[in-house]
Design a protein around this nucleic acid. Structure first.
Lengths: 190, 190, 190, 190
DNA sequence: GATGAATGAGAATTCATTCAT
DNA sequence: TATGAATGAATTCTCATTCAT
């Protein structure tokens, strides 16, 4: 059915955009990668911008799902963050193209539409912030500004991903979760 | 003399690109902001890409200067990093447009030329890595992978800058250096 | 049976083309208005152009029928023209969309196929010319170039229709036949 | 200077649009006819639509100038109309392409922008209406609805032009003014 | 006959770059 | 050196038409 093509287009777009960057990718590039006609792309997406938004929406949705799932587990914040990192990086190791697109094209500025993508990032940061706020309330972590903490954490993750995928350095991706946890180990009480 | 115009163009480009993003900025936009004719831009830069490269080159040069200067001071690594962060963020607080361009447009991929910009980032990370390698040799810090450390550190910095400038949240820029230092405090011996 | 769909398509086309103009009307627009699938349109018409031709053909056929019918009645030319005008405008008052399409899209030039539509107009003008030729032979009207007369007459009719439908000004449509007759009253002998 | 190119583009557009119709004319066609690059067209006009509007604006301006000039002459309405017709048709005889565009593309419907073109026509009709209103006040013509009269008159003119230029039939253009005057002769008192 | 997704040729428009003045 | 009009390659998006179901 139709969803199959939408998926094909998304995957093709991820592939090509990760290689050439969003602005250097033509609709024709995506179409060829997807083995479809250009016109067909427009049966599934209103514009090129919308394809990028869709990629982001899907990925951010996944991250929120992971967070929701982990929240349901009722584990300590430390375990929570470790597991979130593990799963986040695991996805990227399996699909480096996707990671590259998500970390690189997030600054899709200069157009109003881009608002959505910025929003996805915001939402994720806010979700992380909530985790820290709660941990603070439960005295699981020291008295640290949760907002700064969330931004710092998110930035460090993105930075390592970007660097690892650009080199590319898969080993770094594998070590990153453990390394990041060690860097914030000290914020936890006990 | 001519350098005055080159500076005008650079400043205009920073201003406009920070607002619209590199790909949504036309040479005409830069020319208008600089109060020059489009043709004049080409008397100072061979291409649009070259303007961006120039902006990066200048900024990275400045960072390297700061690093060289601090190295000459022969202070502890902790003080070194703290002072580097202070000065780095200070520049951005004074010129947010510049910060926005540098953090956003670093992934200028999909073209061969972009190599230069990637290179600037690499160089800076390597410089930081050197600091950590040396600190390790001097037993100033714990036994931590210096490369990972440099990437982590750089990522966190960039993430906070980007977030702070996007909101924009000047207060975060002010608090960031101290906050980051506290996060890596534990890596230092003593 | 099938003719029902052909009619639905024609009516839908008249409706949409009258609103958006032929070139700004997509097959999809017509299909939606007709509550049919685009593909279905092609079971009844070979192309978009053919739909417009069909609309014209039908209308011109009707006018020719009116003319034939009036000719059979064997009335004076003056009565003939008056009745022709009455019936012509009556149709338009009842279906302004149709009128709008017929007066506006007659210049469907630049394509070979369009010849047909031009032809319809020609045929109608010739029919009117015949009326004047005959009237001249019967000494019903003064010595006036019948060809010029037909063109003049036809132009005035079209102009008034177009103006009335564009405003729209239904009252003008109602008054037009009488007004036009008064304007050519003087050509009749007696 | 620049106006020279604007004129070249206008003339080329008139030529091509008169042959192929507005919607079947590509910007490239106009550019080639004008012996300019496509891009150059956009240095003088914001869009294809704007070219058509410009053609109309110029022509309507000319007609208004003729009307203003004749008004200044303070001649009888009958002479006024005759002279207006003569000059109007004279222009068309000299530049049939222009005439064809003006009579054919006036119904530039389906887009908001088209409003301007409709407006030009309206303005001209209103100007004619004013003539009749004044003539009525001066008892130069019989008691006839001036609005209907203006629309009728304008329609007849357009119809004859269109027919004459479509055939093409230059003789008809030459005879038209006289013929039209004879048709409305009876409305004048005396 | 009816459907509507797939197709790809085609068109408007943009914009980096050139170059004559 | 400064200018800005001219250029035309490149790109996004549209839409008539086809055809497998």
């Amino acid at each position: 059915m139709g969803q199959e093509n939408k998926l094909k287009i998304r995957n093709a777009a991820v592939q090509v955009i990760s290689e050439k960057g969003f602005y250097n990718t033509r609709m024709l590039d995506i179409a060829e990668e997807a083995e479809l006609a250009v016109g067909t792309l427009y049966n599934y997406f209103k514009s090129k911008d919308e394809i990028l938004e869709y990629i982001f929406a899907k990925e951010m949705e996944r991250r929120m799902e992971i967070i929701a799932e982990l929240k349901a587990k009722d584990i300590s914040t430390k375990k929570f963050l470790k597991e979130f990192l593990d799963r986040h990086f695991e996805v990227l190791i399996r699909n480096p193209h996707l990671g590259r697109v998500v970390v690189r094209e997030k600054d899709f500025s200069g157009r109003e539409k881009s608002g959505n993508i910025q929003q996805f990032i915001e939402t994720l940061i806010e979700a992380l912030e909530d985790i820290f706020v709660e941990a603070l309330a439960n005295s699981e972590i020291k008295d640290i500004d949760p907002h700064l903490m969330a931004v710092f954490f998110f930035g460090a993750i993105h930075g390592m991903i970007e660097h690892a995928l650009t080199k590319p350095d898969i080993m770094m991706l594998k070590n990153a979760p453990q390394f990041i946890m060690e860097r914030i180990e000290h914020i936890f009480i006990n």
